[in-house]
């Protein structure tokens, strides 16, 4: 039976007593003893990776850089070759103009019909 004051109202100290503070809950037998193992089995582990797998990103980066460098080198080389060929053609045309030889004469010379 709860205690009440003179106007029949219960106060904090009548309700929140030492007895009320005692833990009324229980756990199943052995709950805390088994908890750790149950939990540790559920923990997601980080996947162990081989050295080959760990090296893959670096290998990919090396291949990319080498590919890009190769492409740049090939393009630069090609441009240089084209520029050289163009310069050579221009030089030849100039030489032909100076030597007053036309294309017909060159053709005859080449076919030894001259």
């Amino acid at each position: 039976m709860h205690k009440t004051n003179h106007i029949g109202m219960m106060k904090e100290e009548d309700i929140l007593t030492q007895r009320a503070k005692e833990n009324p809950f229980r756990t199943p037998e052995g709950y805390f003893e088994q908890f750790d193992q149950r939990l540790m089995e559920r923990l997601p582990r980080k996947r162990r990776t081989s050295w080959l797998r760990r090296a893959m990103p670096y290998a990919a980066a090396v291949v990319l850089v080498a590919g890009a460098a190769g492409t740049l080198y090939w393009q630069a080389n090609r441009q240089q070759t084209l520029a050289e060929a163009e310069a050579q053609t221009e030089y030849m045309n100039e030489m032909l103009d100076y030597s007053l030889v036309d294309n017909m004469e060159i053709a005859e010379y080449l076919t030894e019909a001259y």
């Binding site: 709860h2 309700i15 929140l16 007593t17 007895r19 009320a20 005692e22 009324p24 809950f25 229980r26 756990t27 199943p28």
Partner: peptide, 13 residues
Amino acid sequence: PYFDGDETQRQLQ
């Protein structure tokens, strides 16, 4: 089955 409290404790809960 895992609650052992008396009437006051049950009311408090």
